[in-house]
Design a protein around this nucleic acid. Structure first.
Lengths: 178, 178
DNA sequence: CGCGAAATAGACAAATCTGTCTATCGACTT
DNA sequence: AAGTCGATAGACAGATTTGTCTATTTCGCG
């Protein structure tokens, strides 16, 4: 699964074949198909695993930011910047999965979107902590800002979209809690 | 090219084969390859064509919004909502192209990103008109908001992200021009 | 030590992919 | 009316795709 993740994230879900993954991982084909019924199920399992790791990554950053609700919210954007700076950053696998499987009813599309919803729930909790007038609206707005920043960082290869998003987020938080 | 666009947008660039497009369009294979050297070139030509149409779509909406700079900026978000409401809306083909060809140096990736840059330049002009203190920063922030809204609208099938983004945009514009 | 379960290599099916090539046909122009 | 240029159908190459099947080997555990 580690090999599958690496290749999928590097090149894309559709373009990477089962054979390539198996050859690189040194695993026989039947071993894979004894654990997963199809490539689709493998992708879903990987996305679910990565979703947990990702939420944990942000949660850790939030917890390390102390108790100030605003600071905790902004910690998400600082974590974003660190992520953008990592060498193998190639955008968000979930956004990319949404795009590679554009049909909203597709299981992979839904799994990817579920992750985005979970992240929005984290933002919702933080927005509520911060005493926002409309926490749901604030969470959704910040979520959109985050996804937009990820796309910009991916295409440009720079981490600057994170701080731009952070600045905007700070303004929006201030307005929403004033 | 119309058929190619329809199928690519409906199902994805990688998943739709040349043969499928040709069969549906009633065009011979050599005709295609006399005009384009490869599938990649076809995709790039389509993206460039759609980019022009898209910029025109937003420009028209802006011009129809009158002369108030703020209203003109917000007209972009109203146009967004109309777009989300259309029946065959399946997200942004350019974001999807960025995801399907995740390598930033890939010609298709670059073409798709170029469109996003052109849209940002439109926003930059409007932000300058509006007298923003840092027009570039405002344009980039609004651009991120737009891309985030597109993703949310695609995954949920609803047009509500447009108005959420519009509200946030209105706040940010007010702050940036105060 | 031996048994059972799991992993392995590798052939195989059946379909699909992009791109090339040839030979025929049709339409437009001079 | 003849010649030219482009479109067409369709075969073809060569590679690749997911998933199945079989037969062998390896490993862990009692």
């Amino acid at each position: 699964m580690a090999t599958a993740w690496r290749l999928f994230y590097r090149d894309g879900f559709r373009v990477v074949g089962i054979d390539t993954i198996l050859a690189e991982a040194g695993v026989a084909k039947m071993t894979l198909y004894n654990h997963f019924a199809s490539k689709e199920e493998l992708i879903i399992a990987i996305l679910e695993q990565r979703s947990d790791e990702f939420i944990a990554f942000f949660t850790t950053a939030v917890e390390a930011a102390g108790r100030s609700p605003t600071r905790r919210l902004l910690a998400v954007f600082d974590a974003l910047e660190n992520w953008f700076r990592s060498d193998d950053f190639k955008g968000c696998a979930f956004i990319r999965a949404l795009s590679e499987y554009p049909e909203p009813s597709h299981p992979i599309h839904q799994t990817a979107w579920q992750h985005k919803q979970e992240l929005k729930e984290l933002l919702l909790r933080l927005a509520t902590e911060a005493g926002a007038r409309d926490p749901m609206a604030l969470a959704e707005t910040l979520g959109m800002l985050i996804n937009g920043a990820i796309i910009a960082a991916h295409a440009t290869g720079k981490s600057t979209p994170a701080s731009a998003a952070r600045t905007a987020a700070a303004s929006l938080i201030k307005l929403a809690t004033a």
